[in-house]
Design a protein around this nucleic acid. Structure first.
Length: 222
DNA sequence: TAGGCCATCTGGTCCT
DNA sequence: AGGACCAGATGGCCTA
C-alpha cells in the first residue's frame, strides 16, 4: 500500500466490511438463539472457522477487550506482540490528538461528544468560518465598511476547487466536497457568531474579537 | 434487533 | 531489521 493513498471519510467502513459486520452480528444472534456454548465457531469472511466469545461473557474492564486471534510463540510471536503494542500506542496518540482538537472546538449545544468523523468535519467547517472572519476583518481594516454578506463565500461543500483557496483540502485532493457536508450553512457572519462560537453558555462574536486583534496590530505597527 | 461507533489484532508496504 | 503507517477484519457496547 502506498502512503500517498488517502481514504475519504466515506471509506472508513467499506461496503464489504459493513456486510461482514452485519453478517457477524447475524451469526451471533443465530448462535445465541440456538443456545451456543461460551465458545463457538463461526465462519469468517475468508471462509475459515474461527473461535469467538459470546457477549454474555463480556470481558471485564481489567481484561483486554480482544483476545489474540492466534497466540504465537517464539521470535515471531514476540515481534507481533511488540507491533501490537506500538499500534495500540499509535492509535492512543491519534485519539489524544482528536481529543485535543475537540477541546478547542466550540462546544455543541447538547454538549455531546463528537465522533471522530464529526470532529474532523466540524473542525473543517470551523476553520473555514474563522478564515472568512479574518478575511472580513482585513477588508474592514482597509476601509471597506460594508458587510461582506453579499460577497460572503459559499459554504465549503458547495465550493468548486477552482474557487477555493490554493491550500484548500478540496483542491489538494485529500477530500472531496461531498465528504464534508457543512454542519451549518450560514448566510451571514452574525449567524456564524451566534451559532458556531459558543462556549460556556456565552457567545463570543468572532468578528469583534478579530477586529480588536486587528486594531491592536495596527496600533503596534503605527 | 440492526446498525453505528469504537478498540484491537493483523499482515502488508514503505521508510530509515 | 525494525518501526511507522495503513486498511481489513472482528467483537463489544450502545442506542433508536
Amino acid at each position: 500500500m502506498s502512503p500517498e493513498v488517502r481514504c475519504t471519510p466515506g471509506d472508513l467502513r467499506t461496503p464489504r466490511d459493513a456486510v461482514a459486520h452485519r453478517l457477524s452480528h447475524k451469526l451471533r444472534n443465530i448462535v445465541n438463539e440456538a443456545g451456543g456454548t461460551s465458545e463457538d465457531y463461526r465462519i469468517n469472511v475468508h471462509g475459515k472457522p474461527q473461535t469467538f466469545f459470546r457477549g454474555t461473557e463480556a470481558p471485564s474492564t481489567k481484561r483486554p477487550k480482544h483476545k489474540p486471534r492466534c497466540v504465537k510463540s517464539g521470535q515471531r510471536g514476540r515481534r507481533r506482540m511488540k507491533a501490537n503494542d506500538r499500534e495500540r500506542h499509535r492509535m492512543h496518540n491519534l485519539n489524544s490528538a482528536l481529543d485535543a482538537l475537540r477541546s478547542i472546538l466550540p462546544a455543541l449545544p447538547e454538549d455531546a461528544k463528537m465522533t471522530k468523523i464529526e470532529t474532523l468535519r466540524f473542525a473543517y467547517n470551523y476553520i473555514w468560518a474563522l478564515t472568512q472572519t479574518l478575511r472580513m476583518c482585513d477588508q474592514r481594516a482597509y476601509g471597506e465598511d460594508q458587510l461582506l454578506v453579499e460577497s460572503f463565500p459559499r459554504s465549503p461543500s458547495s465550493v468548486l476547487s477552482a474557487d477555493w483557496e490554493s491550500s484548500s483540502p478540496v483542491e489538494s485532493g485529500y477530500v472531496t466536497s461531498a465528504d464534508f457536508e457543512p454542519r451549518y450553512s450560514y448566510t451571514s457572519v452574525d449567524e456564524i457568531n451566534s451559532k458556531i462560537f459558543t462556549r460556556n453558555e456565552s457567545t463570543i462574536p468572532i468578528a469583534f474579537y478579530f477586529k480588536s486583534l486587528c486594531v491592536e496590530n495596527d496600533l503596534r505597527n503605527n
